[in-house]
Nucleic acid binder design. Sequence first.
DNA 1: AACAGCTTCAACCGCTGTCTT
DNA 2: GAAGACAGCGGTTGAAGCTGT
Length: 284
Amino acid sequence: MGRAPCCEKLGLKKGPWTPEEDQILINYINTNGHNNWRALPKQAGLLRCGKSCRLRWINYLRPDIKRGNFTNEEEETILKLHEMLGNRWSAIAARLPGRTDNEIKNVWHTHLKKRLPPQENNNIKSTKKPRPKQKKKLEITKKSNKTSSKQKQEKEEEEPIKIGDRTMMSPNTQCSSSSSINNTTNNNNNNDGVSMNNSSGESINNDDDGNKDDNLALDEEFWSEVLSSDNSYDEDARKFEDIEFGDLDLFHFPLLSSSASSVACDGMDSWYDFCTKSLELPQL
DNA sequence: AACAGCTTCAACCGCTGTCTT
DNA sequence: GAAGACAGCGGTTGAAGCTGT
């Protein structure tokens, strides 16, 4: 698998986005969609790499982004989901309409992590294998024109960005990030992969380091196998019923079995319920 | 007012997974 | 099956803003 040579070309801009760049990106995606992030900046006339455009759109410009403080309910949800899923921010974000994985990650590290007892904090490990220390980039010309995030937020609240004939605001009225992307663009945006795939194809994996000992030993392969990206739950549900979890066959538990069968109908909601119930299992 | 330390969060980096050729 | 291309993810960074002294 080759690596994407991102931002290798000289002359590509880095750092904070200007309002002009935002507007260009918004306008372009509004009219053309984002079928190909790599080609997008060139076609849109942006001196950015596709990755940067994608990130900017997903984390900031997407119209269904909910800005502002997290509610208590949202924070509780994050805590619960993090307990179940570990640092799978995108999976957690899929349960929180209008919130991005980046935002949730930030909130976790700045607020929620502190709420945990120290012992639990120590148990939190990466869901991935440890990576070698990142090399420091030579020179980054950052923040040359960065506006404060709060200022930006206030500005946006005052002056919602217009996308074509639509105004980027009121995320609460939008659907969750898992389904709203198609609302954001024209009909030629059919294969919008971003959030559709993000949610429907998201593998909900138990934290293979931190939670495994305390919770059910759910095999990662099981999750990725069941939660295939095409939402073919009927097919998957059949597979699901044949799966054993190592020594523990969850489907011998009536509670979980019923949850599991409902998965075929309800998608992520059922997975959430399923996970929630799974955590209750030791008390049964 | 000035400074230092802390907090926040947008953006970057590098890796992995998936799809295509 | 191998390799390339791309999207997506999670970890990390660092400047701006905030707070305390």
